[in-house]
């Protein structure tokens, strides 16, 4: 029971976007898919949902192919940044067709959500603002009877109140019917505690793949006078640095040296997910520039 990506490579006009990527997405978990702009998050999601064909590699659900297969494709739903709906269609009609194709659509909840977000379902899709397009697509995503829901930029154009409402409804809906959500967003702080597992996509690869608590258990910020911090962190996996006067903060990803005494002048703190992400993806970029 899972979605499996095996050796996925994607190239556009000779440029590599994804390079031999492997991934497992398990049932009933909330995932975060993080990556910088242009890292290939949307490409990856489009490959899973069979909207694009990878240059090589396979995507399966419970061992069955996701390529051109109604049975497997019907078990997932990708809410994408690209608008897949016709501008002239009325929202009601789009809900009708979604219900027709997926079956079992939760209409009562959709009506309830539309009221909560203040969305009038008699409008045409093309007439909606960016924020309300997002809201409409979110409503569909939460009411569709699929087991794997992929949300690409789910809060694009939403104000703080609507974002708050969305996160609450997401948890409510997840509690009532546990299923997998994969959330791809740049607002890392807002989902950091919400997600159970995180994928970080960088340099055409998944560079971090693990439970959020395990990963944050291995991410530290070590602050103090330059010399002391440098001495204490020597040989560790330093992913980034900040300087302020004579004070240095070294960001470390990986185990610390347990038998190395911590100097009084040095403090060891944990990193949050956003800070870890920024440092991991910055470091790679700097390295790439050096080469």
């Amino acid at each position: 029971m899972s979605i499996q990506l095996q050796a996925i490579t994607q190239q556009f006009h000779g440029q590599t976007v994804l390079d031999n990527l492997n991934l497992t997405i398990e049932p009933k978990k909330i995932y975060g898919l993080l990556g910088r702009n242009g890292a290939g998050k949307s490409t990856l999601l489009n490959i899973i949902s069979n909207r694009l064909f990878p240059t090589s590699g396979t995507a399966t659900l419970d061992g069955e192919t996701l390529h051109d297969n109604d049975q497997t494709l019907g078990q997932l739903y990708l809410m994408s940044e690209v608008n897949m709906y016709n501008d002239h269609s009325r929202l009601k009609k789009l809900i009708d067709s979604t219900a027709l194709f997926y079956g079992d659509f939760d209409r009562a909840y959709a009506t309830q959500l539309a009221a909560k977000f203040g969305l009038n379902l008699t409008q045409r899709f093309g007439k909606l603002s960016t924020g309300y397009r997002t809201i409409f697509k979110l409503i569909i995503a939460l009411c569709v009877p699929a087991d794997y829901i992929f949300l690409d930029e789910p809060v694009l154009g939403l104000d703080a109140n609507h974002r708050e409402l969305f996160y609450q409804e997401l948890i409510d809906s997840y509690t009532n019917r546990p299923r997998t959500f994969v959330i791809s967003t740049h607002l890392i702080e807002e989902i950091a505690n919400l997600i159970e597992h995180v994928f970080i996509l960088d340099q055409h690869q998944i560079i971090v793949n693990g439970s959020v608590s395990d990963i944050l258990d291995r991410a530290y910020m070590i602050t103090g006078p330059d010399a002391d911090v440098t001495a204490y962190t020597s040989g560790l996996n330093i992913i980034g640095q900040d300087h302020l006067g004579g004070i240095t903060a070294n960001y470390v990803y990986g185990a610390l040296e347990d038998n190395r005494p911590i100097p009084d002048t040095v403090t060891v703190e944990r990193l949050d997910l956003q800070k870890l992400f920024v440092n991991l993806t910055n470091a790679k970029e700097a390295a790439a520039h050096v080469n």
């Binding site: 948890i171 409510d172 997840y174 989902i191 505690n193 159970e196």
Partner: peptide, 11 residues
């Protein structure tokens, strides 16, 4: 609690 603070229910 999960809804109020956007924390994963499992956590």
């Amino acid at each position: 609690i999960s809804k109020e603070f956007h924390i994963n229910p499992a956590t």
